[in-house]
Simulated assay, not measured.
Amino acid sequence: MQIQEFTSKILPLKNKLYRFAWYYLKDKEEAADVIQEVMIKVWHRRENWHMYKSLEAWCMTITRNMCLDKLRANKHQTQDVESVMYILGHNDSPEKEVQGNETFTLIRRLLDMLPDKQKEAVVLRDIEGYSYEEIADIMQIELSSVKINIHRGRKFLKEHLININAYGL
């Protein structure tokens, strides 16, 4: 029963967890290593699965914490655009691909300018599609803080994107 539950409920989260880990680590091999560790940790705690109202939010929290631990240990901060293109699997025309790369690089640069909590909340909501309640569980903060962080992060991104598009700054 537990193996079937693991393959039906946990394994389908693998790609979403990987993208989230890559967001933190910016390295596809390290992200894959973290996800493997997460899967092992989740399997070893299978007796406690019933205690969590959302297994997905619990897995995201474990992923987040493991990534933060790895970053603290390695002081690792690099950006690998090729990894993102690998993840996204772009098969567009060269012109669209270049334009997509430029847009992605700009958004990534703007996201990196946000405070960590705002960046994390915006990514979880707007890229990964989590609800406000799930984000509060994952980030282990109040629901009102989640809403504030998302609002402020989006406002910052919107203002800067408007300025860049209008004035080329």
Rank of each mutant, 00 (worst) to 15 (best):
I62E: 04
I62V: 15
T63Q: 01
T63S: 05
R64E: 07
R64P: 03
R64G: 03
N65T: 12
M66T: 11
M66A: 12
C67R: 00
L68E: 12
L68A: 04
D69H: 03
D69G: 03
K70S: 07
L71V: 05
L71K: 07
A73F: 06
A73G: 08
N74K: 11
N74T: 10
N74G: 08
K75N: 14
K75E: 08
K75S: 12
H76F: 12
Q77F: 10
Q77I: 11
T78F: 06
D80W: 04
D80F: 04
D80R: 12
V81W: 07
V81Y: 08
E82R: 07
E82K: 09
S83Y: 01
V84S: 04
V84I: 13
M85E: 12
M85A: 10
Y86A: 09
L88A: 09
L88Q: 05
L88T: 00
L88Y: 04
G89P: 06
G89W: 05
H90L: 15
N91T: 06
N91V: 01
N91P: 00
N91C: 03
D92I: 01
D92L: 05
D92G: 11
S93W: 00
S93M: 00
S93C: 00
P94G: 07
P94R: 06
E95Y: 08
E95P: 00
K96S: 10
K96T: 07
K96V: 06
E97D: 07
G100E: 06
G100N: 11
N101E: 12
N101F: 08
E102V: 11
E102M: 14
T103H: 14
F104V: 09
T105N: 13
L106P: 04
L106R: 15
I107V: 14
R108P: 05
R109P: 00
L111H: 10
L111G: 09
D112K: 13
D112C: 09
M113I: 06
M113T: 13
M113A: 12
L114Y: 10
L114N: 08
D116N: 13
D116I: 13
Q118L: 03
Q118M: 12
Q118T: 05
K119C: 08
E120W: 05
A121M: 08
A121G: 11
A121P: 07
V122L: 04
V122R: 02
V123R: 02
V123H: 09
L124V: 03
D126M: 10
I127Q: 14
E128A: 04
E128T: 02
E128S: 04
E128Y: 06
G129P: 03
G129Y: 10
Y130R: 13
Y132I: 14
E133I: 14
E133T: 13
E134W: 00
E134Q: 10
E134C: 02
A136K: 00
A136Q: 00
A136R: 00
D137I: 05
I138Q: 05
I138W: 02
Q140W: 06
Q140N: 15
Q140C: 13
I141D: 02
I141V: 15
E142L: 04
E142H: 08
L143T: 11
S144F: 15
S144Y: 15
S144I: 15
S145H: 15
V146S: 02
K147R: 15
K147F: 07
I148M: 12
N149T: 04
N149E: 05
I150R: 03
I150C: 03
H151T: 04
H151P: 01
